[in-house]
Design a protein around this nucleic acid. Structure first.
Lengths: 338, 338
DNA sequence: GGTAGCACTCGGACACCTCGAGTGCCAATC
DNA sequence: GATTGGCACTCGAGGTGTCCGAGTGCTACC
């Protein structure tokens, strides 16, 4: 048995099934692909592939459908990434260049990816943990409220209002602002909490409650926002795929709102050393996502501070999706660096 | 013919249909409601209601189903708003009180409403137009980039990075910061653009490009962000409603991503003078939303700067939905005022 | 190892039937 | 005049039987 041909057959099955969404049989296969052998031979190969767990029959005497394992082999060894066309690349660049700030870039990127792949796009915000602090601003809102604004060198801005019992003294606030900035600017965010903890002692006892409130607010904000956030676009694409609705979409929609699940998944995928990662069906380790696959890629510099990805039915066009995800991630990195 | 009874019949039909999701017939109606007449009488009444366009038969010899017009009459004249239970009210208060800033309040409110109503919740961000400016902060990011942070008295913070050709001089930036704040703080945002336009002349010619860039950025940000934004939660609830899927949900999901449509709709609903507004099916004037209704209520002070609402199939439980929407809107107003 | 032929299986489509829910109408009754 | 009971009629849902085609697995053969 020609081992090579067996893989060719698997590739042909995946490619056909992705297009037709119907179980593919031996005759159709030889008609649409130049495999150079007869249907009967294909049938033997398919029997072997089924024994090995790469394909299954939905029912006796139907065609074959790839399993998660089959898709996995396909993306690992059989798929060739289709490069995007020049116009596509140009469109990506132009669309992302129009952005005005970090939020806008991320927002545009995720919409763009949803559009390109016709699937659900997800993007994880750049992590605060690895960013450095650029500036902390304290703004007196009224006598008893102080607004803390935290600006990182990745261009991200976080805010938090704190309430204090004592009336705010402008000179104390000014001193506090100066000291907080002196003590923390330029440090990585995860180093800052320690510095802030020592700060109250440097102030007069009567001002310490305020100082503690502010440093606590900064620390908490960093801790809390350090836990990443996700933005999703293109959920309508999930439902669009005709009435076939093979994928139960209510659980998937719930998973998309449950950011925790996706965050875990994306951070797991960050372990992969290659420049993109794929999780297929049950590989997500999360039952409601059994019917979907996720392709993601890191972006944001050498250390890849966050990920962007596309999510769709396991029967997706992997080569095209991978190409789009990688392309958008690269443009994103370039823009954030520039 | 007793006019009152006819309305009772309509109310009974709506109530039953909302629960069973099946066309309701004359016999079941008299069984489940104490109408005091026989099915034959009900049939006569139903024939009249059908002539008048309040109900229809999906096909001959099936029960009746309310039309949009029928639901409209129901909410206008027949529905009594069910007050929420005390524990429900308490839960709302507790959940919203935990919020740390404006974003967080809005985010929690919309999730809460989705949870309460088991429908899709939408919330419109408080408008910048009617807010007053609290503070503008300029932060030098590096030699050629300046970050502009705009803080309103509603607690909202907007940011924007601008790039300049000339290297930034710290003293010029400081002066600019002082002047911009002096000229604009306390004004309503829509009055600010005029003031900013006069500003460049007050600086030395060589600094004017920078000044212009900054004032332009502020103006643009206000203009752009003045166009409201919408946050959605609970999309999974759309799909959850069993496999009946009477509502085509792909178009609805698209409409939810097309914020423009919802923004228009919400601002139209703001015209209503009552403290909540309802749009039923085709009343939305937007074909893809033909199968859904929206209940919304203003929040954020006497002038009701924005709206929050719930969206679900036209066959929704209007009294319960209205109660939840109003309750959440009220708590939201209270918290934003406090 | 590859191929051809053949019997077998199964799901989908179609036609047909029955059953029950619900209506509309009419004559009888309050 | 409003209400009611009775009755014929309609229609969809669901079950059954049949047919057809697609696809397989097996075996004998090259």
């Amino acid at each position: 048995m020609a081992e090579d041909r067996k893989l060719d057959v698997l590739r042909a099955i995946v490619e056909d099934y992705v297009v037709t969404r119907e179980p593919v049989g031996s005759r159709g296969l030889v008609e649409r692909h130049s495999l150079g052998v007869s249907p009967a031979t294909i049938r033997n190969d398919m029997a072997v592939l089924e024994d090995e767990g790469y394909i299954v029959q939905p029912h006796t005497s139907a065609g074959r459908v790839p399993t998660d394992k089959g898709y996995r082999l396909f993306v690992d060894r059989l798929a060739e990434v289709k490069p995007l066309s020049a116009p596509e690349k140009r469109a990506i660049g132009q669309f992302l260049d129009g952005a005005v700030d970090l939020d806008d870039v991320v927002d545009r990127a995720v919409r763009l990816l949803a559009q390109l792949t016709q699937q659900v796009a997800v993007v994880q915000y750049p992590s605060l943990r690895t960013a450095a602090l650029r500036h902390v601003e304290l703004v007196v809102v009224d006598e008893h409220r102080l607004l803390v604004v935290i600006i990182t060198d990745s261009g991200r801005v976080e805010q938090r209002t704190i309430a204090v019992d004592e009336a705010l003294a402008l000179d104390v606030v000014a001193e506090l602002r100066a000291r907080v900035n002196a003590a923390t600017v330029g440090l990585r965010l995860d180093q800052i909490t320690v510095r802030l903890a020592e700060m109250p002692e440097q102030f007069r006892p009567e001002d310490q409650p305020l100082v503690r409130a502010v440093t606590a607010a900064v620390s908490e904000t960093l801790d809390q926002e350090g836990e990443e956030r996700i933005v999703v676009a293109g959920t309508a694409n999930l439902a669009r795929r005709g009435a076939d609705g093979a994928v139960m979409l209510s659980p998937v929609l719930e998973a998309l709102e449950e950011q925790v699940v996706l965050l875990r998944l994306l951070s797991e995928m960050a372990q992969d050393t290659t420049d993109f990662a794929v999780r297929i069906g049950h590989e997500t380790q999360y039952e409601p996502l059994a019917g979907v696959s996720i392709v993601s890629s890191g972006y944001g510099g050498q250390t890849a501070v966050a990920r962007i990805g596309a999510l769709g039915p396991t029967r997706m066009d992997y080569p095209a999706t991978i190409a789009s995800v990688r392309a958008v991630a690269r443009y994103l990195s370039r823009i954030l660096a520039g």
